[in-house]
């Protein structure tokens, strides 16, 4: 148990180290990047990805995936944005947005946990439906003219350069991390992802846990959609297209194992900062942002391949140690008998 804890800690620490080294290297090439306002901008700009990655982390913890969050973000943003534009009360608009997330999460959870359909395929279908629903809802037009108070809130600072949004999100991430690691129910997610059969046998409601994970994933995507609307100020029909892939990448970079049961939401948040800083870093290094996709893909593949190789190496080492110990024990026993 202790070793698992240590390993998890090491995984987050290594992604944090990666973030620091990455920023340091960019800072060496262009010292402007290390100005406090620039560094803080990296964090503040990652708020949408942080929310998506934390939601995605729930799905990945249980050993599944949710690729519908990009469209979920777009649809929630479009609905909330248009409600605010039409003068509905903000509370009603936000509640509707979050309700969308809950419903999408329940639907995905039903398909994946109850019907046991491979999650990628099921959520890919949901993604298509939701993307089409954005077209149906908006009629292909942009949602514009959001209330200025709503859009201005995105740049409102809490202290100096830290925006309110990012501060709240970080507080929430830390809170969730504590809930997931310190409470009994919170540990269910990791337990189900690590060994579903085992978790069921010790009395953990595996199906409910999985559905709940998808509901959380949906809610986070909706909140990300609301913040997206507030930050960008307009919503196109393609809002959030492909974000699901970046959220998965952020989780993987943050040290969450895609086989499930390993990692933490803090790792996901760190990964999200790295992911969303890529295009900013490219600009500071003097490259065109056309390299964005290439770097993202390269980083994703490198990290998962390295992770797989390291895991295989450590599994091999543990097996060898076990066999050596067994052989030594057998020899000892043999010696005693003789």
């Amino acid at each position: 148990m202790n070793t698992i804890k240590k390993l998890t800690k090491a995984r987050e620490a290594s992604s944090l180290l990666f973030l620091v080294v990455l920023f340091a290297i960019v800072g060496c090439i262009n010292s402007d990047f290390l100005a406090p306002s620039s560094i803080m901008a990296c964090f503040n700009d990652s708020v949408v990805f942080t929310l998506l990655a934390v939601g995605m982390a729930f799905a990945i913890f249980i050993g599944e995936i949710d690729v519908s969050i990009g469209s979920n973000l777009g649809f929630s943003a479009a609905v909330v944005g248009s409600m605010l534009r039409d003068g509905h009360s903000p509370v009603l608009a936000f509640a509707t947005g979050i309700l969308i997330g809950v419903l999408v999460g329940l639907f995905n959870g039903w398909g994946v946990a109850v019907l046991k359909i491979p999650s990628l395929i099921f959520t890919l279908g949901t993604n298509g439906i939701l993307r089409g629903m954005i077209f149906l809802y908006t009629g292909g037009a942009w949602v514009e003219n959001l209330p200025p108070a709503f859009t201005a809130y995105s740049s409102k600072p809490l202290v100096s350069n830290l925006t309110v949004y990012y501060a709240v999100v970080i507080a929430a991430v830390i809170g969730i991390h504590i809930l997931l690691t310190r409470t009994k129910k919170g540990k269910y997610f990791i337990a189900v992802g690590d060994n579903e059969g085992g978790a069921t046998l010790v009395g953990i409601p595996a199906v409910q846990t999985k559905v709940l994970a998808y509901v959380f994933c949906g809610i986070f995507a909706s909140i990300a959609g609301i913040i997206y609307a507030s930050r960008i100020g307009f919503i196109t029909v393609l809002a959030g297209n492909g974000y699901e892939m970046k959220a998965v990448a952020a989780c993987v970079i943050g040290g969450i194992s895609l086989t499930g049961g390993l990692g933490s939401v803090i790792g996901a948040a760190i990964g999200a900062v790295i992911m969303s800083s890529v295009s900013r870093i490219l600009v500071f290094m003097g490259f065109s942002s056309d390299y964005d996709n290439t770097i993202t893909g390269l980083m994703l593949i490198t990290i998962v391949v390295l992770d797989a190789l390291l895991q295989r190496h450590s599994a091999e080492r543990i097996r060898r140690e076990r066999l050596t110990n067994r052989a030594a024990n057998a020899a000892q026993k043999g010696g005693e008998q003789a």
Binding site: M245, L258, T296, G297, L298, I301, V304, V305
Partner: peptide, 15 residues
């Protein structure tokens, strides 16, 4: 390298 097909082809689609 025994990496999940989904992750690699996801990275591949970016790359």
């Amino acid at each position: 390298c025994n990496v999940q097909a989904m992750v690699i082809t996801l990275g591949g689609s970016f790359l």
